[in-house]
């Protein structure tokens, strides 16, 4: 808990924040509508006597009464995927459409990738990338279980992602040289996962926050370059540190090829605005349009999510 004390000045009702961080997180599943309708998946859960409650803000995101979604027929059929409730936000913010070419820059193990595929109705090209080969095999396993067929899996450092395998700078009509949309669900210090992993903060250090912020800037910068003008880039983390959130946005805004865009969180989901001043630094005022998710507001994990539009 210690590192979280540094956010006391940012959070209203810090006692409620602290108390929420100490409670375990409910198990949540998302219905994979590529394989079953929300009604059918819920009917199958009812028939097996698995108790759940739909979240206030999404009929296909279900909180289970007991832990672990692993052992039920609807799970076996790939109708459900275990995914933390807050983690459903970035794909909704990106709002990918069937037929688009979409990049998930740091994709493994694929909770958000598989949700993007669902929103695309499994049409178009979804590129799921991660630099960690072991985690990529989990991504592939999840995507196959859910019956996804529009996913291309790549193993590159997202900071220098190359379109070479996709035939860039050739005259092949099927080449891909840019994305319509990109999601950067960045590696981070994971402060917001404390409810799921009580030891998440054991190895927290300011040095780690600073080094991971460097990687985040590199990945987000590449995502902005690799996305067509007019396209959307969503940046998300599961951490509270402004160094890894607003400061990273401020860095890319300063380079001038993108702008912050307003995005409304779903009705019934309460968020706080991005912060514009922290630890003696001031950030671009538009970072206020980002969403901070504190655990006590909606009884979820902690999260950060921002929507950008590429302008050049």
């Amino acid at each position: 808990m210690q590192p979280l004390e540094r956010y006391a000045s940012l959070v209203d009702d810090f006692d409620a924040f602290r108390a929420a961080c100490e409670r375990p997180l409910p198990s949540v599943v998302r219905v994979n509508t590529l394989k079953a309708s929300i009604e059918r998946a819920r009917e199958a859960l009812n028939a097996e006597g698995v108790a759940y409650e739909a979240t206030d803000w999404h009929p296909g995101v279900l909180r289970l009464d007991e832990r672990g979604p692993g052992t039920s027929w609807p799970y076996f059929h790939g109708w459900l995927h275990g995914q933390e409730e807050v983690s459903a936000l970035p794909a909704l913010a990106l709002d990918p459409q069937p037929g688009e070419v979409v990049w998930d820059a740091a994709a493994a193990p694929g909770s958000k990738t598989t949700q993007l595929a669902d929103l695309m109705d499994d049409e178009g090209v979804l590129v799921g990338n991660d630099n960690n080969l072991g985690r990529l095999s989990a991504l592939r396993h999840n995507a196959e279980r859910l019956g996804i067929t529009n996913l291309v899996v790549t193993n590159q450092d997202a900071r220098n992602f190359s379109f070479k395998p996709f035939g860039d700078r050739t005259d092949d009509a099927k080449r891909i040289e840019a994305f319509d949309k990109a999601l950067v669900d960045a590696p981070c210090s994971c402060e917001g996962t404390i409810r799921k992993n009580p030891d998440a903060l054991d190895r927290w250090s300011m040095t780690h926050v600073e080094s991971v912020a460097g990687i985040q800037k590199g990945i987000l910068r590449r995502a902005i370059q690799a996305t067509k003008p007019g396209g959307t880039v969503v940046y998300s983390t599961c951490t509270f540190a402004p160094e890894e959130n607003e400061a990273v946005l401020d860095h890319v805004l300063d380079e001038g090829d993108c702008e912050m865009r307003e995005w409304d969180a779903p009705d019934g989901f309460e968020t706080d605005p991005g912060v514009t001043e922290w630890d003696g630094e001031t950030y671009d005022p538009s970072v206020e349009l980002a969403h901070r998710v504190y655990p006590h507001r909606n009884d979820t994990g902690g999260f950060f999510c921002a929507k950008l539009e590429v302008t050049a």
């Binding site: 178009g124 990529l136 891909i176």
Partner: peptide, 13 residues
């Protein structure tokens, strides 16, 4: 695969 891309293509999946 639900779309089409260049062939051959050296990717993981």
């Amino acid at each position: 695969f639900a779309a089409d891309v260049v062939s051959p293509i050296a990717v993981e999946g």
